[in-house]
Simulated assay, not measured.
Amino acid sequence: MSNISRRSFMAASSATLLSVLLAGCDSDTQEPAEQGGDATQAGGKHIYVLTASPDHGWTGQVGVFAQEKVDEVNESGTYTAELQTAGAAADQIAQVEDILAGDLSDVAGIVIQPLDDTVQSAIQQIVDAGVAYVAFDRIIEAVQDSAVANVKGDNEGIGAGSAAYFVENGMKPGDAVYIYQGDTSSVTTLRDSGFTEYLLGNLEFDGAKVPDDAKWTQDQIDAAITKSGAMNWSRSDTKAAFEALLGDEANAQIKWWYAEDDELAMGILEALNGGGISDSAKEAFYATKPFITGCGGLQEYYDVISGDSYADITANLGGVMSVTYSPSMIQTAIQDMVDHLDGKDVEQDHVIACENVTSENVADYVGFE
């Protein structure tokens, strides 16, 4: 071999060896990150469940049902779980940040009930960290595609169920309707749209669409349906708003009252039971034999539907009804996380069907306190 050839060979061999060594260094620096990513996504055993503070009503019962399921997970021994609650979105965001700042190799996943849409930033941090998460109840559209599952009741079905109940009881296209809205979230948007989409003939409820002779036009929707704005899921706010509304006795002629939560429906009933509405306005209101719907499964409202309370008021009404939206759905969300971690297929858009609860079938349902 000539000196030139030998030098060329040695140079090529050295370059090859250097490349191998450099590749090995790259491999060494990347390996822990890859292992850490695998551990975060599949190797951890601890499940965090983040919900609203269990103060009262529906959200309070979410916490009760969540704790029951957390205890069940811990007893099974495959995973550990803990419930953390927050009274404000900022607190919930801080909870997420604290979890992600810890040892991610121990984190199996996070089940979160976002308190409002500002929690989107925290959910994006969960995604960026490679941690599996399940969203419950309030689904934030911008990040929903990154969830293992988005578990929610059929919010459109709630609107459709209320509309179907009204139609069954004689509501005609163009009749005045008043909607008491929950808040400004996707939940309210869907409950609004379900109501109108059913009346337009675009959405089914219980396997059927609105009859052709009861179908509304968009112009009738726009002219006849009034929305309250956000009641913040508050009974007291709805009570005050209803009293103010009936201060103008022309509003007492409205027959169809769609409350987007049982607490809001109870606010109407408490207003009718109190002294904040004039007797003449109440007489005008009762003369129409009005109908009131709610949703959620509040036992107090189920007692009204069954005739065990507020009977003197409901005797003057055409009917009261609720649509199911059980807080026990949080247990489905936690189970979806467990199933995902076990390698099972999980439905990403996990919508739980709802049913109308009337005086005819209320005895078949157990509400929450």
Rank of each mutant, 00 (worst) to 15 (best):
S13T: 11
E204P: 11
M321L: 12
D349V: 04
M10T: 03
V366P: 00
E34V: 02
L245K: 14
S53N: 12
G161M: 00
A122N: 14
V366G: 06
L341K: 15
Q61V: 12
H350G: 06
L104S: 02
Y178H: 06
Y286I: 00
Y286N: 01
S13Y: 14
A164Y: 06
T293L: 01
A311E: 06
G63E: 02
K69Y: 07
V131F: 05
D154S: 13
G367N: 12
E260D: 10
A230F: 01
D175L: 03
A94Y: 05
I254V: 11
I277F: 00
D128G: 04
A240K: 08
D279E: 07
T40M: 12
S234L: 04
E369P: 15
G297S: 06
S162G: 14
G102P: 12
T226E: 04
S280M: 00
M266N: 07
G60N: 02
V20I: 15
A163N: 03
A101L: 12
L317M: 14
N251C: 01
V151W: 00
T16N: 13
M1T: 02
N3K: 13
T288L: 11
L245C: 01
L115M: 07
V96A: 07
L21G: 13
V49F: 01
D128R: 09
Y178W: 10
A147P: 07
A94D: 09
Q84L: 13
N356K: 15
I313K: 03
S186E: 01
D116Q: 06
T217S: 15
V210E: 07
F9S: 08
D91A: 09
F368A: 08
G170P: 04
A122K: 06
K289C: 01
R191S: 02
A52L: 05
L246C: 00
G44M: 07
E197S: 15
V351E: 02
V362P: 15
D26N: 10
H46A: 00
D192W: 11
S328I: 10
G247A: 03
I268R: 05
D237C: 08
K172L: 12
A90I: 06
Q113E: 14
M171H: 06
L246S: 09
G170N: 01
A52M: 12
I292Y: 10
G182L: 13
V320W: 13
G44Y: 02
Y258E: 10
I126F: 07
V134Q: 10
V338Y: 06
D219M: 04
D55T: 12
T184A: 13
N361R: 05
T80C: 08
T189G: 10
D345Q: 11
W216Q: 04
E156K: 14
K282N: 02
L100C: 08
L100F: 06
R7N: 13
V119Y: 05
S76C: 05
Q348N: 08
C295I: 00
L50V: 01
I225L: 02
L18G: 03
G276A: 03
V119C: 11
A252C: 14
A11D: 03
G343W: 08
I4K: 15
A12M: 05
Q67F: 03
P327E: 07
A42T: 07
E197W: 11
T288P: 09
A224T: 06
A265C: 13
A244G: 09
T288W: 05
I352P: 15
M10C: 00
T324Q: 13
Q61D: 12
T314K: 06
G229T: 02
G24W: 05
L199H: 09
D116N: 08
D303S: 10
T189Y: 09
T358P: 03
E347L: 09
L199F: 13
G319E: 03
N3M: 10
